[in-house]
Amino acid sequence: MRATESETREQTINSRWLTTIAIFMIILGIIAIIFPFFATITSTLVFGWVFIFAGIAQIVYAFQSKGAGQVAWKLILGLLYLLAGIFVLTDPLQGALAFTLVLGVTIFVQGIIQVSLAFQLRRISPNWGWMLVSGIAGIILGIFIWSSFPFSAFWLIGTWVGINLFFDGVWMLTLHSE
């Protein structure tokens, strides 16, 4: 099967766009790693807007539901999302603190769950050790976030966003450079 000239041109254009996006993501990642405080605040503000839009969507969804109980719970959830978004946007520093604390707790609890599951899988799966290592790493990272809190709140999220953007850009660049 031969590619037509228009297909080849389209692939070249798509490849250029992907390369451009990948390089842009790498640059954003490096900037976020160099300036983690600003990346943390920016990420917090983005999450605030996401919560506001999610709250509005949940409230609209609640009014389209049938049954008073369903409407009430969905409405409460929508209002919580909306209030969380407003809180984060009005005080992004406090929002960053809250996000970091929630992240630390989540990673710690996930680590505990993974360790527990790993021991349950040790007789079934020969690779259960990887889950155990991941769980232990999660517990250690969760403890690290707690022990360095609140100072970690001002660099942690921004640094992780930067690392994620950087590596996403790298894999996009290497995957589509063929």
Rank of each mutant, 00 (worst) to 15 (best):
residue 150 P to R: 08
residue 138 G to R: 02
residue 109 V to P: 03
residue 119 F to W: 13
residue 134 S to A: 15
residue 151 F to N: 15
residue 116 S to R: 12
residue 126 P to G: 11
residue 119 F to M: 11
residue 145 I to Y: 01
residue 113 I to A: 12
residue 127 N to M: 13
residue 142 G to I: 02
residue 105 V to P: 04
residue 128 W to F: 13
residue 116 S to K: 12
residue 104 G to P: 00
residue 133 V to G: 04
residue 114 Q to I: 04
residue 112 I to K: 01
residue 101 L to Q: 08
residue 115 V to F: 05
residue 138 G to Q: 01
residue 154 F to H: 12
residue 135 G to H: 03
residue 126 P to A: 13
residue 112 I to G: 07
residue 118 A to E: 06
residue 126 P to Q: 12
residue 126 P to F: 11
residue 127 N to E: 14
residue 113 I to Y: 12
residue 145 I to N: 00
residue 119 F to Q: 08
residue 147 S to V: 11
residue 131 M to V: 08
residue 105 V to I: 15
residue 108 F to M: 00
residue 128 W to L: 07
residue 124 I to H: 12
residue 123 R to P: 04
residue 129 G to C: 09
residue 143 I to T: 06
residue 114 Q to H: 10
residue 122 R to V: 09
residue 110 Q to T: 11
residue 121 L to E: 13
residue 149 F to R: 05
residue 153 A to I: 06
residue 126 P to E: 14
residue 133 V to K: 05
residue 147 S to N: 13
residue 129 G to D: 11
residue 133 V to P: 01
residue 116 S to I: 14
residue 150 P to G: 09
residue 143 I to V: 15
residue 118 A to M: 06
residue 102 V to M: 12
residue 129 G to R: 09
residue 104 G to W: 04
residue 137 A to H: 04
residue 140 I to K: 06
residue 106 T to H: 09
residue 138 G to S: 07
residue 151 F to A: 15
residue 149 F to Q: 03
residue 102 V to W: 12
residue 110 Q to N: 11
residue 140 I to D: 07
residue 148 S to V: 09
residue 107 I to P: 00
residue 142 G to N: 00
residue 119 F to G: 05
residue 108 F to V: 00
residue 150 P to W: 08
residue 154 F to L: 15
residue 99 F to W: 11
residue 105 V to F: 12
residue 143 I to A: 10
residue 135 G to I: 02
residue 137 A to P: 03
residue 104 G to A: 06
residue 99 F to A: 04
residue 127 N to G: 13
residue 106 T to S: 11
residue 110 Q to D: 12
residue 140 I to M: 08
residue 117 L to N: 10
residue 130 W to M: 14
residue 143 I to P: 00
residue 132 L to I: 08
residue 138 G to V: 00
residue 126 P to M: 11
residue 106 T to K: 05
residue 135 G to R: 01
residue 108 F to R: 02
residue 152 S to N: 10
residue 144 F to A: 12
residue 127 N to P: 05
residue 128 W to C: 02
residue 132 L to C: 07
residue 118 A to P: 04
residue 139 I to T: 01
residue 128 W to T: 05
residue 142 G to C: 01
residue 105 V to S: 09
residue 145 I to M: 01
residue 114 Q to Y: 07
residue 122 R to Q: 14
residue 118 A to F: 00
residue 144 F to Q: 06
residue 103 L to C: 07
residue 107 I to G: 04
residue 152 S to C: 13
residue 98 A to R: 05
residue 98 A to D: 02
residue 110 Q to I: 08
residue 122 R to F: 11
residue 104 G to N: 02
residue 147 S to F: 13
residue 99 F to M: 10
residue 137 A to K: 05
residue 149 F to A: 06
residue 139 I to G: 02
residue 117 L to C: 06
residue 131 M to I: 10
